[in-house]
Amino acid sequence: MLEFEKVAVLGFGTMGTGIAQLAAQAGCEVTVLETDQARVEAGSSALGAFLDEGVRRGKVTAERRAEILARIKGTTAIEDLADAELVIEAVSERRDVKLTLLAQVAGVVGGEAVITTNTSALSVSDLATAVPRPERFAGLHFFNPAPLMKIIEVVRAVQTAPELADRLADFARALGKEPVLVKDRPGFLINRLLMPYLNDVIQGYDDELATAEDIDTALKLGLGYKLGPLELLDMIGLDVHEHATRSAYDATLDPAFAPPPLLQAMVAAGILGNKSGAGFRGKENAR
């Protein structure tokens, strides 16, 4: 018995696509809201392509792929979310955009519907203010790629009803994930630990401790990490990391979160990691 059977996902980008797939795999009926038809189609085809890859690798059968896709409907009409029991917001990390959209969605769904945000960089308690009865609001933070990563952070806003965190933890388990209950602090748990470490490595690299390759090799061989920190930054996107760590710095004034000067310079120069073709480990090295 699923905790929530009808799920609305807001945003059909990378995270929205992965979250929609996860919910559909668990048996939920999923409606994904986007701003225009082109984005709906882009999201659907990304989802199809991800599942095709799964079929090719023998991880999913063709029937299962069809079944999952049949449970996901894209829409541009907010009224289509009316019967949702759980809303998961996964649009771009802009406070004003999220606040406006959450207020609109709260006006359409039932008063008992649970509303969550997949934000990684904004305050969940702040976003909860967009919704009447904010005790039904919480954070549900997925990691990228959502279908593959084993953890979901369940974030208790200061307004969140205590039993809601437990319901969301059950839901995370139904998706095949391990829930980690966390407080609404900048970076929650994982990013709070990860961001200072990545900043530290960027500064060490800028201070010419070693080459980017040797820093990654040392941490992979020395600690058994799958990815070195600089490879990881190239994958995350330097702009994404810069935004997240700057938000945490603004909220805490903790210098461990301050974006290092080299990071700021690379982002300003459009050197964003894998997506821009150059990063710390790209062919055109930053230095």
Partner: peptide
């Protein structure tokens, strides 16, 4: 939970 989060989300051994 911290050990689980770090291994699950960051792939540390």
């Amino acid at each position: 939970s911290i050990d689980a989060a770090v291994t699950g989300a960051l792939g540390h051994p």
